[in-house]
Design a protein around this nucleic acid. Structure first.
Length: 437
DNA sequence: TCTGGGGTCCTAGGACCC
DNA sequence: TCTGGGGTCCTAGGACCC
């Protein structure tokens, strides 16, 4: 019986989300990403890709390639999360089991497609794409095939705004001409190893003996990737399990060279990671710190404590204890804190009695003061705004004591722009969710 | 102009226990 | 006087993904 797996991928998702909720940006080159000296492009609209801009490119480089009508905005993950939920809600209606890869990607194995014909699958996917577009305003590309790997590669080939269904039985010939990097799981290192033995296409990888594949790529990886290259992939589509770790990290604008500064930053990052731990409603047993040196070499150190906790003071103290002094090896460009060994906290009364409650000193480490709900001291491009009379908008430009706000949202069509003095009391920080109206 | 931030999974060595 | 083997946990590093 034919098995059909589909892979759904939202086109240029972050940039598309910005264009959707800020209609003035539609049709223009839009970049989403950090604007600091070490920022990179997290999302690039197709209009910007025409100028050679790509995701993960340093923002400084992208900025030079960006034409005059281009726009750079900081990411708004709350908006992307909400939109992602809207899209997946549509998909769940026709395929209850979803394997989410990220905010913009998921596998599904729709029960109604078991044993379906090529035409039936094509029609199903086309309808799904139309529904997503109609109900959310976003464009999804879809690939379909006999397994996850084929579906994933097919959606890559289908992009942008496309659909590709690989007929059953043609998997091997579909894969054969593709470069090995097309396979999910082959990165720069594996590609290099394969090139070294003269393997550049998936056809060549499939033709390799299992022995040679294992010798080149290692035991488990070699065996699995060679099999996938032949088009055989019976891995199930399954909901991703529970979160296994939460983390936060920061790349500094300039390298940190002294322990005092590093300690303060790590404390701040530990607070950020702790927020994620609390949001995930988990307790952690292991604290991992990550330090990246000026030369990009990265080291990690970890410590596992006897009992899992979500106590910020305890976790942050471990993170600090693991720190190394930058004076010993030069500068630090990135620091990170991760909490792993996660479990669900149990509220068992007897257990609580047996363990002394945390001392009041747990307030030694405190979160930074919450941002004021009122207007910020200075508006920046991309900020969400709400105006007493004009409603929802965003900061299109700011400087010289002035701020220009474009008033628009998902369903408003392109809006009008108005310029205010920075301190105008009618302007307040807006809720990012308002642009989804 | 250098190279983000959030994850998953795998490997390998050593400690430790039976 | 020489020195098992299996299993699990912890730590560190690295490949890969979006």
């Amino acid at each position: 019986m034919a098995r059909w797996v589909i892979h759904l991928d939202l086109d240029a998702f972050y940039a598309s989300a910005e264009q959707l909720t800020r209609p003035t940006l539609a049709g223009r080159p839009v970049l989403v990403g950090g604007t600091g000296p070490r920022g990179v492009v997290a999302g690039a609209s197709y209009e910007s890709r025409a100028f050679g801009i790509r995701s993960a490119m340093p923002m400084a480089q992208a900025r030079r390639l960006l034409p005059a009508n281009g726009v750079i905005v900081p990411p708004r993950f709350r908006v992307y999360e909400r939109l992602s939920q809207e899209v997946f809600a549509v998909v769940t209606g026709v395929a209850p089991v979803l394997e989410k890869i990220s905010l913009d990607e998921a596998f599904a194995e729709p029960p109604s497609l078991t044993g379906a014909s090529l035409d039936e699958v094509t029609s199903f996917c086309a309808t799904l794409r139309e529904r997503i577009r109609a109900e959310t305003g976003l464009v999804a590309s879809i690939g379909a095939g006999n397994g996850k790997q084929i579906a994933k590669i097919a959606s890559d080939e289908a992009k942008p705004d496309g659909l590709l269904v690989v007929p059953q039985g043609t998997e091997r010939e579909f894969l054969a001409p593709l470069p090995v990097r097309a396979l999910w799981g082959i990165g720069p290192v594996a590609e290099g190893k394969l090139r070294f033995i003269g393997v550049q296409t998936l056809g060549q990888l499939a033709a390799l003996s299992e022995q040679d594949a294992v010798a080149t790529l290692g035991g488990v990886v070699g065996r699995d990737l060679r099999r996938l290259a032949t088009g055989f992939d019976d891995r199930p589509v399954a909901d991703r399990g529970e979160t296994k770790q939460v983390s936060a990290e920061t790349t500094f604008d300039t390298d940190i060279k002294d322990l005092t500064t590093l300690r303060a930053e790590v404390r701040r990052i530990a607070v950020g990671a702790h927020k994620r731990l609390v949001k995930a409603e988990r307790v952690a047993r292991t604290v991992v710190i990550k330090l990246r040196h000026t030369d990009m070499h990265t080291v990690t150190r970890s410590e596992t404590i006897s009992a899992p906790t979500d106590d910020l003071a305890e976790l942050a103290a471990v993170a600090e204890r693991l720190l190394l002094d930058p004076a010993e090896f030069g500068g630090i460009r990135l620091a990170g804190v991760a909490y792993s060994g996660l479990s669900v906290p149990h509220q068992d009364a007897l257990f609580s009695l047996a363990v002394p409650s945390a001392p009041a000193a747990s307030t030694v480490v405190t979160a930074p003061a919450p941002a004021p709900a009122a207007a910020p001291s200075e508006w920046r491009q991309g900020d969400d705004v709400v105006h007493e009379e004009l409603g929802t908008g965003w900061v299109q430009g700011a400087g010289h004591g002035r701020v220009t706000v474009r008033f628009e949202h998902r369903t408003s069509g392109p809006g009008v722009a108005r310029t205010f003095v920075q301190e105008d009391p009618a302007l307040r920080r807006g809720d990012p969710g308002d642009c989804l109206k």
